[in-house]
Design a protein around this nucleic acid. Sequence first.
DNA 1: AGAGGTACCTGGCAGC
DNA 2: TGCTGCCAGGTACCTC
Length: 271
Amino acid sequence: MPELPEVETTRRGIAPLVTGRRVASVVVREPRLRWPVPAALARGLTGQVIRSVERRAKYLLLRTAAGTAIIHLGMSGSLRLAAAADAPGAYDHVDIVFDDATSLRLRDPRRFGAVLWTTKPAEVHPLLQGLGPEPLDGAFDGDALYSRSRGRRAPVKAFLMDSRVVAGLGNIYVNEALHRAGVHPARAAGRISRARYAALARNIRATLEDALTAGGTTLRDFRAADGSPGYFAQRLRVYGREGEPCMRCRAPLRRRVIAQRSSFYCPRCQR
DNA sequence: AGAGGTACCTGGCAGC
DNA sequence: TGCTGCCAGGTACCTC
């Protein structure tokens, strides 16, 4: 579920609650996530103070003096602060317990998420190393997309979902940004002009910022760290709206699988 | 190098 | 009510 705005919403929710707190223990009830939760996580985190909570793409980074915990929410993960008396549920796989007995609790029914530990700078971790620019950074613009896209015949939708091209864009927001920019999702990435990539970059940024303002998108079960849902689902222009009229031109929206994922678009005003 | 397919795992929902 | 089949927000990894 979580794309960049949901991960960032989570980060903003937990950062003030865990920054400066000391880890007393780590409880791993189910280590079988995307990758096994390493024993080094508990060894490394215990006794450490959380210095900051940062985000790179869809990865959350809990930084300490000894190393960094890397957390990915996968498709169904969520994080919240649990009280000491709060009994864990069946999908509450990992608790990072603080010295006041509250804990940062990872819930992940589908277990596509991950919790890893690195003592090196997180930026050089294999999962983070090849990532493209952050779409909300000032440095991200259409030229970054244009120059990488030359010669690429893959659909622009697949191109934009490649985290080496731009970090953190998932299926929902790619659909939305392409609609806003008037670009057809199946168009070959290498056959889009510099000017249109500039518009696309602007619309990627605007879409993500709007979603952040709304607290993310709750389609099924996304919840922010405080349990509140995201309200961006009501503002989605194309995602999940097959057959409904395009908000711009009233033509019926279509759904089609592109790059193995559902794509929603307007056949009239996306070219 | 790039493109396309597969795999991981489980819940929710539509349709019968 | 219960069963079946389909669908899902991510992404590493494999092959061609």
